[in-house]
Design a protein around this nucleic acid. Structure first.
Lengths: 236, 236
DNA sequence: TTCGCGGTAGAACGGTGTTCGTCCACGAAC
DNA sequence: GTTCGTGGACGAACACCGTTCTACCGCGAA
């Protein structure tokens, strides 16, 4: 009882607390914007709440926990992916194009990869992209089991690539930093003990090429596509 | 000056603060043991320090930061991997065996995968395993550039698989939990809109099979190996 | 008009990585 | 033999994190 009993109750309303009410939609919108602008690390329950002008506890009325919010972000991103209509004569190129599309979206929302890795994507949009991949793989005449495991393998690879990139982006390297690092790396390889690392030294040039990641990714999807093609049933 | 001036100086030594001095080695040993026994989440700078009977600040005299400690753990784990001598007639099977070996070690040290993902492994032991993989790939007559990118792709895939498993292990699921989840998943697939998810529904069985992960992993290394083989130069 | 209820939100709990500044033991120098 | 400098040890603190407790309050139903 530290308050004076005659204190006026509610001094002319406390600064209009009405505001637009919270909602799942508004929370995901805000989190997504922060993800794009400031990266995954910046998307904390506290900061999302602060951006919405409230406290962290308020979010929990609409979102179960951080993990669910991550899942919602993944699903929101998946909404933007576009896939071709399956064409049996062209399924390998379609598969590659779809993987490129997946990486494109994940690059556009850095941090979504981190949210996506290690979770089974069961949201509406994510399931739709699975369906699209399955359609392409079936057009390629893959056995059911191979197609099923492939739609596990493919997002795993693309997500891992995107995640790796996003981790390195966290370190905030400029183009020059990368160039410097690559040349340092090359001379590090060359300084190794030739007795123990003969091949690493011989391939120092090849090992340090393709730093941008695009070429490496192209290589990866080529390997996966060719590997899957080798499992396709002859004819149809 | 709150102390009494006649107070005896150093009351028979303050509980022997000598102890064995800290060192990088001791820190990594302790962290590794905690990683094995309690998982990655339990390995914090504070807890490692506590296990060593000191405060967190003491570690920073020997280890730059948490990330460096993670790297040291990765390198320590890589020390345990064993690779076959390259055999040109058997390189595909050797490649698969090496990937299995890599996964085996990463499973033995849950959390190492999490520490490894998104970093270029430049430690002594990690470089050695790269060298071994290169030897096998060269035995398979892969072009230099393909071999170089392959030793990027291969650890990326294995690490991603191990990381995914370790994330799911964090959730502490029993065998029964998994079974229940899989059957739930199956009925979820079957409850989807047949208009929009025809293939997902048709393949519900295949999609939910191989829950243990071993079969999925075997599929993955088969795809990668076959894909790489398709890039090998004809003959030598 | 009253009551109940659900969204809001401040405060707090128990954690995290990292840094600051103090203290002290030890080896080198005088 | 004594002094001094230095580097490791480390308690305390900083700025965060996800989550929960609990009080409050406005609004719709009764």
């Amino acid at each position: 009882m530290t308050q004076s009993p005659w204190q006026p109750i509610s001094p002319e309303k406390p600064a209009r607390p009405v505001r637009e009410p919270l909602s799942r939609e508004r929370i995901v919108d805000t989190a997504m914007r922060m993800l794009v602008e400031q990266g995954y690390e910046a998307v904390s329950m506290r900061k999302v709440a602060q951006a919405l002008g409230t406290g962290p506890a308020s979010l929990y009325a609409h979102v179960a926990n951080k993990q669910e919010l991550d899942n919602l972000l993944v699903n929101r991103a998946a909404r933007e992916m576009e896939f071709p209509e399956p064409d049996p004569d062209n399924w390998q190129e379609q598969l590659k194009a779809s993987m490129r599309e997946m990486l494109r979206v994940m690059r556009a929302y850095p941090g979504v990869a981190r949210a996506a890795i290690g979770q089974i994507p069961l949201g509406e949009q994510a399931m739709l992209s699975t369906e699209r991949f399955l359609a392409i793989l079936k057009a390629g005449n893959l056995p059911d089991q191979a197609a099923a495991w492939a739609v596990d393998l493919i997002p795993l690879y693309v997500t891992a690539v995107a995640f790796e990139e996003s981790v390195q982006r966290t370190w905030e390297w400029t183009e020059d930093d990368i160039e410097g690092f690559v040349s340092e790396l090359r001379s590090y390889f060359n300084s190794l003990d030739p007795q123990r690392f003969p091949i690493t030294i011989a391939l120092a040039g090849a090992l340090t090429s393709g730093g941008s990641g695009d070429e490496r990714f192209e290589f990866g999807i080529q390997v996966i596509t060719a590997g899957l093609a080798s499992l396709a049933r002859q004819q149809g």
